[in-house]
Design a protein around this nucleic acid. Sequence first.
DNA 1: GATGAATGAGGATTCATTCAT
DNA 2: CATGAATGAATCCTCATTCAT
Lengths: 190, 190, 190, 190
Amino acid sequence: MRVKDEEKRQQIRDAAVRLINEMGFAGASMSKIAKAAGVSPATIYLYFENKEHMVQSLYLELKAGLLQGMMAGTDQEATIKGKLRRAWRNFHALLISRPEIYRFCEQFYNSPYIRALPPEKIDRIYSPMAAVFAAAEAQGLIRPLPFAVAFTSVFGPLGLVMKLGPQNGVPSTPEELDTLFDMAWRSVAA
Amino acid sequence: MRVKDEEKRQQIRDAAVRLINEMGFAGASMSKIAKAAGVSPATIYLYFENKEHMVQSLYLELKAGLLQGMMAGTDQEATIKGKLRRAWRNFHALLISRPEIYRFCEQFYNSPYIRALPPEKIDRIYSPMAAVFAAAEAQGLIRPLPFAVAFTSVFGPLGLVMKLGPQNGVPSTPEELDTLFDMAWRSVAA
Amino acid sequence: MRVKDEEKRQQIRDAAVRLINEMGFAGASMSKIAKAAGVSPATIYLYFENKEHMVQSLYLELKAGLLQGMMAGTDQEATIKGKLRRAWRNFHALLISRPEIYRFCEQFYNSPYIRALPPEKIDRIYSPMAAVFAAAEAQGLIRPLPFAVAFTSVFGPLGLVMKLGPQNGVPSTPEELDTLFDMAWRSVAA
Amino acid sequence: MRVKDEEKRQQIRDAAVRLINEMGFAGASMSKIAKAAGVSPATIYLYFENKEHMVQSLYLELKAGLLQGMMAGTDQEATIKGKLRRAWRNFHALLISRPEIYRFCEQFYNSPYIRALPPEKIDRIYSPMAAVFAAAEAQGLIRPLPFAVAFTSVFGPLGLVMKLGPQNGVPSTPEELDTLFDMAWRSVAA
DNA sequence: GATGAATGAGGATTCATTCAT
DNA sequence: CATGAATGAATCCTCATTCAT
């Protein structure tokens, strides 16, 4: 029973993310999402309170997944810089393998919807990453900066660059990638 | 015969930008925009073919204004780095004085609307800036990078940081600003 | 789950026919039709794809009903002329008892809407009637004429005359009716 | 001066008839008509009180022209039957040379618009034709019938047949035409 | 006389959501 | 739990008409 439910929730989630990425929040109507998910519109309301809640949930889940994916394996790295490089490469891999996740998050983050989300819910997602940056700063590896600024400086450009699309110079070879990480690192290095 | 009024176009433009920033593309209905602009809904259609065209026009105008504002006075700078620092500070000043412009552009850029815009129209806006980066690279000041990547690395983090809001560590003192530019510059410096 | 209601479709159909007859295709807005049918505007779209489809459906249904009504009982007539007289009287009776049907069909048929209908759909409706005329011609009772011409010559004047309204000489007594049929018959009789 | 005015009125009239035939009363908006006529929407209102009046005027003018065209040369015919045959052939020629006239009239006549027209205005148009039928009846050539019924019986089928379109058996050779007139005449002949 | 700008009212249609099964 | 029917409110947009020049 529980499995079947979670499956259906997944179908709805995936359909919603896909359609919202294709058509925007407005264009992706509940009916279209329902049809794409193979369920009745009414069924969506068994899993989500309403459209706003659904979108917020999607964002929080995707964002959490994104950061979890970035942190994957970082605890096996000995050095702080190694952890960050690992996270950075994870991020790049995710942008390649699951571009719809970041795309959705960015659309949401840059829309007015974001203001209805209590910031703490987002902060909590970032806390493992924040710990790494705090350690880096404590070790004097990076400049003393607010976490958000440091994080943004390291990971922001990669996200932005990947948005550009392949024809605008997105890096693909390992060397280009290393260069890009080096650039990011240098910007925050103490 | 009455004559078409540039002022009226401005009213509509401003109202549209404000409402879209507040409520998103979907929430900002043509009626609401009309009311906020003090005109009839039908009047908007004298100035813009339809909502999609209007939003695209707004984006192109705002983006062009943004880049023009960034380039302001750069020709008076002797060095390439000076030009870029000036542009960078212009950007910061614009983010402070007219935050709605960048906000709108980012919402548009991260939405599916962007895909309906021919990329050349955007490229054209960036061309003066691209010239500066080309010169920088020619002088060996910065690493050899595709323009979009280099531009993003220099100006991207500032935009991202300013989106965070004051409580998340947005820099305000001149020293903090200088630090931020230094970080951006170092990331691309040869 | 509620179940789609044939009765509701009827309500919509009747309201639409009535309003279109009263106010024309343009005047009969979907909202007015909905109100007259006692349903929400949105409900109409559960039963008809859009206004154009609705009007076409109405035409095809009414036209089919009209021809079915005309053919009623003709198979009990021994002679071809008897069949045609019966059909002719059926037509007259229908024009009296359900004038809105012919009125709607004529409005549709004389409007540009008709051109969106594939002619075969209409031809099919006429096929039983065409068979009778073919038999008449085979028996040498009527002149050799294309079906549409023969049909029009027999039934057309009656329809036209009934449109005139009572004050313009619409026949009412059985004698007048017999005269009119005799006129129609003579025009095509061999 | 006067010429120029009448010219412009003609342009508007022709554009309106054409568009209404193509798109129906609703589809042919005043703006579209204005554009097709090469004038401003406001200009139409210098020549016609409003859309309803315009459509009515068009109908009355076209209908009057139609009947004038039918009557052309009938006074040179010696016999009543000759006059009617001439009118009938004129009608056929007009249906071929200026189909838009009859088409417009039929669309109008079969729409609810017609009910806003005082019947006398129409009757007056028919009066010369009515005189011919009265003479025919006085001479005992045709059955005693209300004018409208007789007229309809003679000319109605031709109009209906021409509406069918060439693929449905519209007559084209002189023999077919003679047959058709013979049919019409027989139906009313005493 | 002629214009194009301007408009409020209303058009067809779709929306997020709820109801009844 | 799941559904498709049902809906009032809202969508974008166009209309017939008038205004100011």
